[in-house]
Design a protein around this nucleic acid. Structure first.
Lengths: 221, 221
DNA sequence: CTTCTCACAATCGTATACGATCTGTAAATT
DNA sequence: AATTTACAGATCGTATACGATTGTGAGAAG
């Protein structure tokens, strides 16, 4: 018996962290909601120490906010915050693509094309956002900059669900598909500037859609 | 008697966090060095709980690394990591400048010019890096994107000291001064593309200097 | 009926306590 | 002599305990 001891060393902290993060990103927890340490601890069958570590980590991610002597609350993402994050995403993804293109091999193009084909074939709206995510990951991954890819991934996880709430349903399949195809073609051609500006316009369009959605909601109040 | 109660609420955690962060960024703690929780706790006159919270926060910043059951160590920044961070800095600062220029007022130009004048007048090498930091902050601040500025600031704090170790002494005053002047002039002209590509070249030059320094060190081993 | 005061419950932030695991050293075995 | 085993000290990760602070509701004053 190996007795590999699958027991995670600092598992308690990490489990709480992941659970809270998942719930916050999924939107199950409303912004401003108080996160009582004792409750969370009991819920996960641990004590407060790992809970506080998890909350501190989430605080660093700006997912929760500590108020002195009043504990942690779920940080609500304002409209401005969301638009700011989209601007940052433009910066990060465009740079990544710029660095990625010179490194792309034929197999990268094929992989990206497969994702687009799957996209085309999928009637399921639920899958679109996942396929969109995979396409972006696919063309950016060759950049070889792990920290950059990690940053992009973090922002995607925070921005993605919020954007999906507003535009994915409305935007349809046609426009993103056309833009993705054009980006991939420019990558194939090694046309760095064309590809980057196509990607930039692609994300800027999303940003404008989000801004429009926000505008409409604010007007109709 | 106001009895404002200057006592910080969660001061213990924050003091430890800032002290450790300062030491790590300043390089007083070598990469790989073990950070013993009990020692740090005794040193700051607190218990382990705030220490662990501080370490978790530093872990999120990739400044320390937790090894299961073996505690935390100072994360050493590899040469590749440093070059990666400079690439990210290019992405972030160029985007910030692009967003900033349309928002710049005359007073912004004046402020930036003052920094450059101070630069010119300062014979003190120690001040150059600080003035360089202030110039960058100055022209990027009008972008109005708080999260972006915060990200840029984080990277500056991590990259700055490491870059300074290698290039500041060698590069002199003339080249940065010329590049800064040109960037500011393009900003004044509202020439966004010129300003951004000048800034990009400015940072890329730094990256090349760092890469050259690394190369030389590796060859002579 | 409204507003202020005050005590009590709830919660936070941190210290202390304790089992589990790791590391280093010295004896024991091959 | 080299490698393995055994044991002790150190350290980690977490649970429990406790003072401090803040919100809250009942009762008194206006």
């Amino acid at each position: 018996m190996p007795k590999v001891s699958t027991d995670d060393p600092s598992a308690a902290f990490f489990n709480v962290y992941q659970a809270l993060r998942k719930d916050i990103l999924a939107g199950s927890l409303e912004g401003g909601q108080a996160l009582r340490q004792d409750d969370i601890a009991r819920l996960h069958g641990v004590s407060k120490v790992p809970v506080r570590e998890a909350l501190r980590r989430l605080e660093m991610e700006s997912l929760v906010e500590f108020r002195p002597r009043r504990g942690a609350i779920v940080r609500s993402v304002s409209d401005d915050d969301l638009l700011e994050m989209l601007d940052i995403r433009i910066a990060l993804e465009c740079r990544a693509l710029e660095l990625a293109i010179p490194n792309m091999a034929e197999s990268d193009f094929e992989l990206a094309q497969e994702v687009l084909d799957e996209y085309q074939a999928s009637p399921d709206k639920e899958l679109w956002s996942e396929l969109n995510r995979r396409f972006h990951a696919c063309i950016l991954e060759p950049c070889g900059n792990r920290q950059l890819l990690s940053l992009i991934n973090d922002f995607e996880q925070r921005v993605g669900p919020l954007v999906r709430l507003r535009v994915t349903e409305a935007t349809g399949l046609e426009r993103p598909m056309r833009e993705h195809t054009q980006i991939l073609q420019s990558c194939r051609d090694g046309a760095v500037n064309d590809a980057v500006s196509a990607l930039r316009i692609h994300i800027e369009t999303t940003k404008r859609e989000v801004a429009a959605s926000i505008r409409r909601r604010n007007i109709s109040r």
